Structure formats: C-alpha cells, structure tokens
Simulated scan of single mutants.
Amino acid sequence: MGEPTEIRTAGIEHAEAASGAGSVDGAVPSVPTPDGASRAARTRSAALRLRIHEQRRNPSRPRVFFELALIGLSYWIYSLVRNAVPEQEAVAQKHASWIWHFEQHLGIAVEHSINHAVNSVTWLIVGMNYYYATLHFIITIGVLVWLYRSHPGRYAAARSVLFVTTGIALIGFYFFPLAPPRLMDGGGFIDTVKVHQTWGSMASGAGAHVSNQYAAMPSMHIGWSMWCGLAIFFLARPLWVRLLGLLYPLTTLMVIVSTANHFWMDAVCGEICLAVGFLAARLIYHQWAYRLPRTPHEPAPDEPVTVPAQWTAPVGASRR
C-alpha cells in the first residue's frame, strides 16, 4: 500500500530544504564548515586572498601622486635619520682603523694610491667631485621616472628593492659610524673637494655642518648606482644603453675611492644591502623585479573575482 500523498509531499519538501533547493531566492544557505566558519565567509576570504595573490604577482599601475608623496616622505626620513645620528668621532675613527687594517690584511688596501694618483690629474678629479655630488641623485630619480612611465608593471617591485636597500643602510649608519678615508686620522688621504674647492658635496665645506660625516658604511652611492645599472641592463633595449647601465656602478666605484669618500668594504656592504633588497622584493611579489609583466593587467570594474568551484557548489552536491 502506498504512502498518503500528504506524507510523501512533506517528505520531498523536507529533502529539498535540506539540500538547499527549496530556498525562496535560490541562495546557498550559510552552513558551518568543519573549522567553524560559514561557507559564505570562506568564499569571501578566498576572494580576498586571490585578489591579494594576484596583486603580488601582477602589481597594479602606480599612481603618480602616491609615488611622489612616498618618495618625498622616504627621502625626508632617510635624511633625518642619516644626519641625526650622533657623530661619534672616536668610534668612527676606531672603525675606520679596523676596516683599513682588514683591507691591508686582504691585500686590497689600494685606496690611498688611487686617491693620490687621480688627484694629480686636476681635470679628472674635479670631474669626479662633481660626479659624486650630483649624479647619485639625478640618475636614480631618472631611472625611477623611466620605470614609472615605461615599465609600470615592474615599478612597484623595483621601487621596493630600492627602499629596502636604503632602510638597511640606515641601520648601518646608526650602529656602525665610520670615518671615510679622507677624515681618517693618520691615513694620509686627500680630501679632494677641499683641495680643489669644488661645490656641491655634503662631505666637505659648508655642507659638512648639516650632514653626518660618519655615515659611510654601507655606501649608498654603490647601492643606488648598482640598482640603476641593473634596471637599465635588464630592461633597456639598445645594447649600448645596456652597456652604459653596467658601466655606471663601476664608474661610481672608481669615483668613491678616488675622492676618498669610501673604502672598498663600504662598497661591498652596499652591494649586500642591495642583494637583500632584491630578495625581499622576490618574497613579496613571487617574482624577481624585472621578470614581472611590463604592463599590469587591470580588471574591468565589473570583472568578477573567481574562486574554486567547489567552494561555491551547493552543500548537497559536495556530499554526493
């Protein structure tokens, strides 16, 4: 004998309600998952994670006013911290003596000979003085602008490399004050800016009164110039421009040694800071800075954020 019609209908309606098919608006009910979160919350968090993941792999186009404000604020902090560090002359002189003796032990202490040899060629050393005082900022800003305009998809990662590198350098300035060769007691180095009375250097003359004289380790002239050189080498198209990119940090190395503003070891530590900056950007963006897409993909305003299909499937379907 069959079941009464009313009983059969009620059973069907009960089963449909349990599977979600009987809801009025067709929405998937919020059913707790084993970890206690609702399916709706799980879906929203998944969409957020996917959006963040996509943003890290494919950074959005930078905004000019935000970047200008960020660079201005960062440079202000850089200058403030660098120049506010107490000028511990005794400690800085002791550190300079350590570095100089260490280089002599390694057989690479040639800064004194280079400094005196180049200083004997007036036009060359004067040019190097102006190079040291100006190109450090001009070329770095120029490369940032070029990346912003021509490689917007890679700009954020490359800028992050520069910021991390500089942040590490500030730690070095604070905890390891170092007298540059030109100020080292008994070193016999020539302060080429003072001797040839060239303008523009914060290391000598009037600028010395507003700049920390013992923020020499690591060398950001090398860190920034290598950052510029690698960006040009990997991203520029003409071969001669790419070669100039490689030549720039090498020339900068010769300049900082010839003008007695840095030891070799300052340059080595600057390169180490830059390497850490690249590794940090690699962790953030899941790619090396120059391997990211040249132009970022920007989704349309109504483009949906997709999530795995099984996360949005009806509960009953996932159990069949």
Rank of each mutant, 00 (worst) to 15 (best):
A15G: 08
W146E: 13
F175C: 12
I77W: 06
A37K: 03
W240P: 09
S120M: 01
I12W: 03
D266P: 12
V255P: 04
G72Y: 05
H116I: 00
L239I: 15
A96H: 05
V164S: 07
P218T: 06
A84P: 00
W264L: 11
L70T: 06
F65D: 08
L246Y: 08
G127H: 01
L239M: 12
L250P: 10
R291Q: 09
E111C: 03
T33Y: 00
H105K: 01
A41T: 01
W288D: 10
L247F: 12
F173T: 15
N83H: 02
L230G: 03
I77V: 11
Y130C: 01
K94W: 00
H297Q: 14
I52T: 03
P152V: 08
V64A: 13
P177I: 15
R42N: 03
G205Q: 07
L279K: 14
A215S: 13
L244W: 13
R320L: 05
P86W: 01
G229E: 07
Y214T: 04
M220Q: 12
V143Q: 12
G167L: 07
L244V: 06
L68V: 12
G142M: 13
F176V: 15
R159T: 15
E54M: 14
A15K: 11
L124I: 01
E16F: 01
I52F: 09
L144I: 11
N83A: 06
G107M: 01
W100N: 08
G142D: 12
N58G: 09
V118R: 00
P293T: 08
H112E: 02
E87N: 02
W240S: 13
I284H: 05
G2A: 09
A37P: 00
I190F: 10
C273H: 02
L183Q: 14
F175D: 08
M184V: 14
S219W: 13
H262P: 07
R61V: 09
Q104R: 06
R56G: 05
H286K: 07
I12M: 05
S160R: 06
G187F: 11
I168G: 10
W227D: 07
F137M: 15
P181S: 13
V276D: 07
T134P: 00
